[in-house]
Design a protein around this nucleic acid. Structure first.
Lengths: 209, 209
DNA sequence: CTAACGTTTGTCCAATCGGTCAAAAATTGC
DNA sequence: GCAATTTTTGACCGATTGGACAAACGTTAG
C-alpha cells in the first residue's frame, strides 16, 4: 500500500496548508457546490492554475479537508474514559465539545454542511468508524448507569443531545447572536452556554433518590 | 401597499404550489447555490422556461419558500403560553418541535442551510421578529422560575437547547440513522428521542428541593 | 553558464448555469 | 367557431464554472 502521501518539497507542504486553510474558510461559508476554485485561489493568494498544481481537482481539496477534520472532530469523544468519575467525565466532554464549537466553528459548519446534504462523501465513515466509536462509548455510559453512578437514560440519544447542543453554537451562531442581541450575544455567550449546559446535563443526570 | 399577491387563475395557484413543493425538495438537499432551475423544473414535471413563467427568478422561489416556512416554523413557540402548567407547557413545546422535525425535515434543513450560510436573506427577521418572540417567551419562562414552578436557568439558552436537540433529528438525520444502525435507527427513533428529551428537560427542570 | 527540475501564469475549452424570447399550443370568453 | 388570453416550449445567449495545457519563470546543483 502506498497510502503514505509522498509530499516532496517544503514549498509544497506550505502551499498545500495555505490552500486548505483558505478552502476551509470558503467551503464552510458557501458549501461545496457554492464555492468556486477561484474564490479559494484568491483567498489563498494565488492563481487558479497554480492552485490546481497542488490539488488536481476541487473535490480533492474537500476530501483532504474532510479527512483531517474527522480525526480532530471525534477526539473529545475518544477521550471519554471509563477511569474517572462519570459526572466529571461527562462534564469534561461537554466542555471540550463546546470549546471546539467556539474555537473551530468553520470545521463544525463544514461537517454540518456535509451531513445536511446527506453525507454523500463520508457515509461509510459514519456507518463504520463513527458508529463503532459511539457504540463503544454508549456501553461505557451504560455501565455507569448500571452501577447507579448516573441516572438511567438512552446513552445514544444522550450523546446526540450533547452533539446537538454544543455544535448549535457554531452552526447556528448567527441566529444565536441575533436573538441574544448586542449585549448578551457578545464574547460571554459561550460561558453562559457552558453554565447552562452543565446545569442541564450534569444536574439532570445525577442519580435520582 | 400592494403586498397582497394578486394570484389570478386556478392553474397558476396549482402550478406555483407544484413548483414550491419541488423546490423545497431540491433546495433542502442541495442548498440554494447547489440547486439548479433545471433540477427544480424536472422535479416539478415541467420545462425550465415554463417554470420561469411562474417564478421570474430562482431567488423568488427561495424567497417565497422561506417566507412561508418562517410562519409555520415559529408557530410552536408562539403557542407556548403562560396559562397552563409550566412543565406541561414545556413538554408540549418539545413534543411539537420534535414532531415538526419528524414531519417536516425538509423545512428544517432548508432553514438550517440558510442559517449555516450566515442567514443572508433572513437576517432582519432574526434580529426583529424572532428576537422579539424569543425575548417575550423568555420572560414568560423567567416568570415561572421566579414563582418556583421550574428550576432557575437561562431561558434563552434553554430555548436554544430545545431547538438544537429537536432539529438535530431532522438536520442530522443521516448521521442519527447511521449511528443507531438498522435496528434502532428505524421508525422508532423519534419515540426514543421523545422519551429521552422529556427526561432530560422535564426531569432536569423540576424545582430542586 | 547551463541543464534539470519545481513553480507560476495566461490562455483556452467544454459544460453548465440563470435567464430571454418569439412562436406554438392550449384555454377561455363570447 | 373565433378571437383574445394564458400557458408551454425549443432555441438561444452571455456569464460562470471546473479544469487542461504549454509556455514562461524561478531555483538549484554541477
Amino acid at each position: 500500500m502506498d497510502t503514505a502521501t509522498p509530499r516532496r518539497t517544503r514549498i509544497q507542504q506550505e502551499k498545500r496548508e495555505l490552500i486548505l486553510e483558505a478552502a476551509l474558510e470558503v467551503f464552510s461559508t458557501n458549501g461545496f457546490r457554492g464555492s468556486t476554485i477561484d474564490q479559494i485561489a484568491e483567498a489563498a493568494g494565488m492563481s487558479k492554475p497554480n492552485l490546481l498544481y497542488y490539488f488536481r481537482r476541487k473535490e480533492d481539496i474537500h476530501e483532504t479537508l474532510m479527512q483531517r477534520l474527522l480525526d480532530t472532530w471525534l477526539a473529545p469523544l475518544r477521550e471519554l474514559d471509563d477511569i474517572g468519575d462519570p459526572l466529571t467525565e461527562l462534564r469534561s466532554y461537554i466542555r471540550r465539545k463546546l470549546e471546539m464549537a467556539r474555537d473551530f466553528p468553520r470545521e463544525s459548519r463544514l461537517f454540518a454542511n456535509e451531513i445536511l446534504q446527506g453525507a454523500p462523501r463520508i457515509m461509510p465513515m459514519l456507518e463504520g468508524e463513527l458508529k463503532t466509536l459511539v457504540d463503544e462509548k454508549a456501553a461505557v455510559i451504560k455501565g455507569w448507569m448500571r452501577t447507579g453512578k448516573i441516572a438511567r437514560t438512552d446513552p445514544w440519544h444522550l450523546i446526540f443531545s450533547i452533539w446537538a447542543t454544543t455544535q448549535h453554537y457554531a452552526d447556528f451562531d448567527v441566529q444565536v447572536r441575533a436573538v441574544l442581541g448586542p449585549n448578551r450575544g457578545g464574547d460571554g455567550r459561550f460561558e453562559d452556554a457552558a453554565r447552562f449546559l452543565e446545569q442541564l446535563f450534569i444536574d439532570g443526570l445525577k442519580p435520582k433518590g
